[in-house]
Simulated assay, not measured.
Amino acid sequence: MNATDPTETGSGARVQRRGFGIDVGGSGVKGGVVDLDTGLLIGERFKLLTPQPATPESVAATIAEVVAHFGWTGPLGVTYPGVVTDGIVRTAANVDKGWIGANAREVISGALGGQRVTVLNDADAAGLAEERYGAGRDNTGVIVLLTFGTGIGSAVIHNGALLPNTEFGHLEVDGKEAEHRAASSVKERKGWSYERWTKEVTKVLVAIENAIWPDLFIVGGGISRKAEKWVPLLENRTRVVAAALQNSAGIVGAAMSADTDVTATHK
């Protein structure tokens, strides 16, 4: 499948800009074709279970299966659940420790027969997608995406430009790491109400506000689907909105990275 495809519209033919993204997680590897003009998936996404152990070679082979499912032959973007600099993996929280020090671009490209691959942090990919197509659309300045799940992922976008590999989940807030204080997994484990949990989330947001003064927070993760139950309870000063793209954000952001080479100098 090519990166462009002539598509008839009401005013004649247009060239549909297509990209391809893969979102690698601790439990699943999912991919899809993306309309880069709208941020929408073209057709259904395809998902395979993350192999166990999730070594570089086994994950790369699974990525190749997902790509083959679509017959995609062009450049593609891949998210990784950790820090990646210049294509080299630096952390491995939810995958095999064998990733640390591996050149993710080379390993994945090798499994794909040499296709060009960009690799970026999963939260960074979601942030890029939300800023362009989702909850951050039409906003300027500094946007901070935070994903609340087992931990807290983060992305910082300034007027469309990504500051890669922020790790706000590991900020110390009142003597405790942010994600140990306010991840949604903490709420579940302790049986907290939304009211109790948002007190901790507020502390984390205020700590970030005091450090970089963002213009907008976007909150994602599964708990964002019930944003109406907790976002209004927050007491920080910056506006907070729920993520809009949900499960497709990583795929869309990955496809964007391959299309624009947004991570060319800091993958």
Score class of each variant (00 low, 15 high):
Ala60Lys: 06
Tyr194Trp: 15
Val173Glu: 11
Glu195Ser: 14
Glu195Asn: 09
Thr91Ile: 03
Glu167Gln: 13
Leu163Asn: 09
Thr62Ser: 15
Val204Cys: 13
Ile223Ala: 10
Gln115Tyr: 03
Glu130Ala: 07
His180Lys: 14
Trp72Asn: 10
Val156Tyr: 11
Trp99Phe: 02
Leu171Asp: 13
Ala102Arg: 12
Asn159Ala: 08
Gly250Arg: 08
Phe46Val: 12
Asp261Leu: 12
Ala92Phe: 08
Asp96Thr: 00
Glu177Thr: 11
Arg237Ser: 13
Ala129Ile: 02
Lys226Cys: 05
Tyr194Val: 00
Gly253Ala: 03
Val262Leu: 14
Trp213Phe: 10
Leu205Val: 03
Gly253Lys: 07
Val84Tyr: 01
Glu130Pro: 02
Val144Ala: 09
Thr147Tyr: 08
Ala93Glu: 04
Ala3Val: 03
Leu146Val: 11
Thr73Trp: 01
Gly28Trp: 03
Lys176Cys: 08
Gly43Tyr: 06
Val186Gln: 14
Pro214Asn: 11
Asn121Cys: 06
Thr4Lys: 13
Pro164Asn: 14
Gly82Val: 04
Lys47Ala: 14
Gln16Met: 15
Arg116Trp: 04
Lys190Gly: 01
Leu120Asp: 10
Val107Arg: 12
Glu228His: 15
Asp37Glu: 14
Val119Glu: 01
Gly141Met: 08
Gly12Val: 00
Ala13His: 02
Val119Asp: 03
Gly10Asp: 04
His170Thr: 12
Gly26Asp: 06
Ile42Glu: 15
Gly77His: 12
Met256Asn: 04
Ala135Ser: 09
Ala254Glu: 04
Gly10Lys: 09
Ala244Gln: 11
Thr166Cys: 13
Asp122Cys: 05
Ile22Cys: 06
Asn103Lys: 02
Thr198His: 04
Glu130Asp: 06
Tyr80Thr: 00
Val34Asn: 05
Gly31Asp: 10
Arg196Pro: 00
Ala68Ser: 15
Gly101Ser: 04
